[in-house]
Structures are given as C-alpha cells and as structure tokens.
C-alpha cells in the first residue's frame, strides 16, 4: 500500500522534474522546486510508515517550516537586487 503510493508519487515527481528542466521561465522552476518540496514532505512520511519508523516525520516538519523562506529570498532578490 505504502510502496504503491510512493511509486505513484515518484512518478508525479518525475513530471515535476520535467517542468523544472523545461522551464521556460525561472519561476516555473521555482514553482517546480516548491511542488517538489511538498512531495518530499509526503514521501518522507510514507517512507517512514513503509519501513515502520515514523520518527522520520521530524524531517517532514523541517520542510513544512522552512521551505517557504527560499521563496521569500527570491522575492527579495527580485525586488531589491540584493538580499539584505
């Protein structure tokens, strides 16, 4: 059950990767990275359950907490041309 879900999600990740490589704009790639981040959260949880070690979830929390900061940095870079 878990493995089936993992494989299906990895196929989805492959589609996202195609978008990340094709672009065309940089923002499509950022979007793909973001979507990949959400996928990773779910996949990590599924990996944990598949192998009977759900303490993997701490890792998913990190992504849930910090992944949006990258997009903030990108916005700042676009708006100001610098990061501080």
């Amino acid at each position: 059950m878990y493995i089936a879900a993992i494989i299906a999600l990895l196929v989805g990740a492959l589609m996202i990767l195609v978008r990340a490589i094709l672009g065309p704009s940089a923002y499509d790639r950022i979007l793909a990275m973001n979507a990949m981040g959400t996928k990773t959260v779910v996949l990590v949880a599924l990996f944990g359950f598949a192998s009977g070690r759900p303490e993997f979830l701490d890792l998913a929390i990190i992504y849930a907490l910090v992944s949006f900061i990258t997009t903030v940095a990108i916005l700042k870079y676009i708006e100001k041309g610098r990061l501080d």
């Binding site: 990767l17 990340a20 490589i21 940089a26 790639r29 950022i30 793909a32 990275m33 990949m36 981040g37 996928k39 990773t40 992504y63 990258t70």
Partner: peptide, 8 residues
C-alpha cells in the same frame, strides 16, 4: 533552483 530540487 535545480540544486534545491537535487537536495530534496
């Protein structure tokens, strides 16, 4: 961005 994906 791709490096970010790679790291994920």
């Amino acid at each position: 961005m791709l490096t970010g994906v790679y790291s994920l």
